[in-house]
Design a protein around this nucleic acid. Structure first.
Length: 652
RNA sequence: GCCGCCUUAGCUCAGUCGGCAGAGCGAUUCACUCGUAAUGAAUAGGUCGGCAGUUCGAUUCUGCCAGGCGGCACCA
């Protein structure tokens, strides 16, 4: 018999692929097949490494905590986790001991040995592992639905147990229900792993099930790659918008105001204002009309829209108005309940509905930077990206069915143009389609089909990378989402274009067609930034705080070499202000070097320095954030260069 | 919301095995007037997140609450 070990002697090969299936190297290679090698640094190889590391973690946990019961332990992006049920709580202090135990297991060079078992056998061997028994009961086609990651334990095929065998004694020292494949032995995990954090996680992802303790780890083929990963995390932490927001004095979340409610300081507000004004200008160019609506409304609107019924727990509790009671407390006058608005659309719909509409008016495009309030779970809040009060750059387009394709094409082109203005360059589209198995959708099947087809054509002709997602659509219509990749390769979902057949129906929207008949318009909900606050946070992280000049809160700062030259710089600054440049002159009692350091750390794009030499020559000297300098630039030219950098949205 | 951890000066963080707290940066003042990432000195600044409890005594121990962080769940 031939095994993978016979075919692949390179130590970097950790598994093989036959007919698309990943197999242990110890498996027999069937006659007439040509296995492909899977190396440890490939995507599949890394997953195998990480999955094996998860097993080693579980073994170490059960060695040090024999009462720990096993959940699941799959590989994930950059690492792995394993869930445990254990009375005592893990803390990061336990990691040192666990890592030492893992190191001991790794060094002992245990082999991962696959063994096919019957269901009875598995149940008997794993009698003390209630969660594994539950998974055995779910094996087969249900496995993937059991929980994200559960298919690594039980898949569609036969049940298997992996024995960890000590190479010296030949004894099985530990075992786990698992589909594999695994590394040939634990030694290949080497030094490239680290435990990262511990967290709670619901068993099989449901809040009504027990909460297990999840230990996250990372694992890499070499120690250098582990170090590089840790460095990457540190770099990401440096550009965390919450940290930059404080350091650059952009915004804050005072406890006195409430969780998830942001205050915008002058510098943050300047940048945000630039963003809003730019977007506003572009919207008007594209035929949008701005509207304004209140932040609070009677309950009727959100009952009609269905939001109150569907998203009730995310809506802030009502404010009761105008209720009157007699001395016994009986209601003598019924009050009205008002809600903070969680959505802008019903208000825009009422603007549409305020008078009869003709087919000639469509498409109508109502835009608003509408601030909405949602009662997010406290644990969901995160900086500016998940808040309880935020502003959508929201627009609602009312179109005839025959206008869908053209309008969505327009919107998509618009989205991309606008995001490019902000310096984003990598885009991907995602078309979310109806889930045919779910009955819960509204609207005529034919409309769904034509709308989905229209969206697909638009997506395809955009030339962007594009995927279709089955069953991800809202119940009221298909949608296209746009994702961007930021400067350090992270992906963010920003814009969304959603077709809605539901709200026009619920609100009884109509227009009069050319033949005099009443027709129902289709609504397109679209947001480009999504949430202005969140988009600000994404840009802040994308640029690590060093905005392009047009967005920088302070675009230039004058630094006199000594106090005597401050007046000269004030003259230059006055001229720049006349050209709309945001400039300050630093009159603080610091040495020039210190000022340069301060403003560099504040990420000011242009530092304008002048001393005796420049004053005599009628020039100034530029210093940029990255340390470059341009000396002796005549004042007029300096002004032009700064103005041009702003106008061209340059990043200096 | 759930699990775990955290909360000390404006910021970043030490510290007190229970005896009313400290650094760096920042702020203020003074001296210095300087050519490309930190001049020096002095001063001010804290009911140690809040409320209870234990104790002769609580910033330190316990409980509850609030806020934050990491996940889970949620995300119109």
């Amino acid at each position: 018999m031939t095994t993978g070990f016979d075919l692949f002697t390179d130590r970097a090969v950790v598994a093989m692929r036959i007919d698309g299936k990943l197999l242990d190297l110890a498996r027999e290679v069937p006659e007439g097949t040509t296995p492909e090698p899977v190396t440890i640094d490939s995507d599949d190889g890394l997953s195998i490494l990480r999955h094996s590391a998860a097993h080693v973690l579980a073994q170490a946990v059960q060695k040090t905590n024999p009462d720990a019961r096993l959940g699941i332990g799959p590989p994930i992006q950059d690492g792995f986790y394993y869930d445990f049920d254990l009375e005592e709580k893990f803390s990061p202090e336990d990691f040192k001991g666990l890592q030492q135990e893992m190191q001991r297991i790794i060094k002992s060079g245990q082999r991962f040995v696959r063994r096919v078992v019957t269901e009875e056998q598995a149940r008997e061997e794993l009698a003390d592992e209630p969660y594994k028994l539950e998974l055995i009961g779910l094996k087969g086609p249900n496995a993937e639905k059991a929980a994200e990651g559960a298919s690594v334990e039980v898949g569609a095929g036969e049940l298997t147990i992996y024995d960890n065998v000590d190479p010296k004694s030949g004894d099985t020292v530990w075992k786990d229900l698992c589909q594999g494949p695994h590394l040939p032995n634990t030694r290949m995990i080497a030094n490239g792993f680290s435990l990262m954090r511990v967290a709670g996680a619901y068993w099989r992802g449901k809040t009504d099930r027990p909460q297990l303790q999840r230990i996250y780890g990372t694992a890499w083929p070499t120690k250098d790659e582990l170090r590089a990963y840790i460095t990457r995390l540190e770099e990401a932490a440096k550009r965390d918008h919450r940290k930059l927001g404080r350091e650059l004095d952009l915004f804050s979340f005072p406890e006195e105001v409430g969780s998830g409610l942001s205050l915008w300081h002058p510098k943050g507000a300047v940048t945000r204002g630039e963003m809003e004004q730019h977007a506003r200008k572009r919207h008007i160019e594209r035929g949008y009309t701005y509207v304004y609506t209140p932040h609070i409304t009677k309950s009727d609107l959100f009952e009609t829209s269905g939001h109150l019924q569907t998203y009730g727990e995310g809506i802030w509790p009502p404010i009761l108005m105008d209720e009157e009671r007699d001395d016994e407390g009986n209601i003598t006058k019924r009050g009205a309940e008002y809600y903070l608005k969680p959505m802008n659309c019903p208000m825009h719909i009422l603007i549409y509905k305020d008078r009869a509409r003709s087919y000639r008016e469509l498409p109508l495009r109502f835009a608003e930077n509408g601030t909405v309030y949602r009662n997010e779970f406290s644990g969901a809040l995160h900086g500016l990206t998940r808040v309880r009060g935020f502003t959508q750059d929201d627009a609602h387009l009312f179109v005839r069915p025959d206008q869908i394709e053209e309008e969505v094409t327009n919107v998509l082109g618009f989205v991309i143009d606008l995001l490019k203005d902000f310096g984003l360059t990598e885009f991907r589209l995602e078309l979310s389609k109806r889930d045919d198995e779910k009955e819960k959708w509204i609207g005529d099947e034919g409309v769904w089909t034509t709308a989905t087809d229209a969206l697909r054509r638009v997506a395809q002709s955009s030339g962007l990378e594009f995927v279709e997602e089955e069953g991800e659509a809202a119940f009221y219509g298909p949608k296209i989402d746009l994702k961007i990749t930021d400067a350090i390769g992270r992906s963010w979902q920003l814009s969304t274009v959603q077709l809605d057949f539901n709200l026009p129906e619920r609100f009884g929207l109509e227009y009069t067609a050319a033949d005099g008949s009443k027709q129902r318009p289709i609504m397109i909900h679209r947001a480009l930034f999504g949430s202005i606050e969140r988009f600000f946070a994404i840009l802040l992280e994308h640029y690590a705080g060093a905005f392009p000049v047009w967005l920088a809160p302070v675009q230039a700062v004058g630094i006199p070499v000594a106090q005597d030259f401050a007046g000269y710089l004030e003259d230059v600054a006055a001229k720049l202000r006349m050209r709309g440049v945001r400039i300050e002159v630093d009159h603080s009692d610091e040495r020039m070097q210190k000022k340069i350091r301060n403003h560099t750390m504040q990420k000011v794009p242009f530092q304008i320095i002048a001393g005796a030499t420049d004053v005599e020559a009628g020039s100034v000297s530029f210093r940029y954030r990255d340390g470059r300098q341009d000396n002796g630039i005549p004042v007029d030219e300096a002004i032009e260069r700064i103005v041009e950098a702003i106008e061209t949205k340059a990043h200096v």
